[in-house]
Simulated scan of single mutants.
Amino acid sequence: MVSGPLSAAEIKLVQETFALVEPIADDAAALFYGRLFEIDPSTKPLFKGDMTEQGRKLMAVLKTAVSSLEKLDKLVPAVKVMGQRHHAYGVELKHYTSVAEALLWTLQQGLQDAYTPAVEAAWAKTYGTLAEVMMTGAQEPPATRDV
Rank of each mutant, 00 (worst) to 15 (best):
I24L: 02
D27K: 08
A28S: 10
A28L: 09
A29M: 09
A30K: 10
A30N: 08
A30S: 11
L31A: 04
F32D: 00
F32H: 02
F32Y: 08
F32W: 08
F32G: 00
Y33E: 07
G34E: 10
G34D: 12
R35L: 09
F37V: 02
E38G: 02
E38L: 10
E38H: 10
E38R: 09
I39F: 00
P41K: 05
P41I: 09
P41M: 05
P41G: 05
T43K: 15
T43N: 14
L46R: 13
F47W: 03
F47H: 07
F47R: 05
F47Q: 08
F47A: 08
K48T: 11
G49Q: 12
D50T: 06
E53S: 10
R56W: 02
K57E: 02
K57P: 00
K57V: 09
K57W: 09
K57C: 01
M59H: 03
V61D: 14
L62E: 08
L62T: 10
T64M: 15
V66W: 01
S67Q: 15
S68C: 07
L69C: 01
E70P: 10
K71H: 08
K71N: 10
L72W: 00
L72T: 15
D73T: 00
D73N: 04
K74D: 06
K74S: 04
K74Y: 04
L75C: 06
V76Q: 03
V76I: 14
P77M: 07
P77S: 03
V79D: 07
V79I: 11
K80T: 02
M82Q: 09
Q84C: 04
Q84S: 06
R85Y: 05
R85T: 13
R85I: 11
H86W: 04
H86D: 02
H86F: 05
A88V: 13
A88I: 12
A88W: 08
A88S: 13
Y89S: 12
Y89E: 07
Y89T: 14
G90D: 09
V91E: 02
E92L: 12
E92H: 10
H95Q: 07
H95N: 09
Y96F: 14
T97Y: 15
E101T: 12
A102F: 01
A102E: 02
L104F: 03
W105V: 15
T106N: 02
G110V: 01
Q112E: 14
Q112M: 07
D113H: 12
D113W: 13
A114R: 07
A114Y: 01
Y115T: 15
Y115F: 15
T116D: 04
T116K: 08
A118H: 14
V119H: 05
V119F: 03
V119K: 06
E120D: 11
A122K: 12
W123P: 00
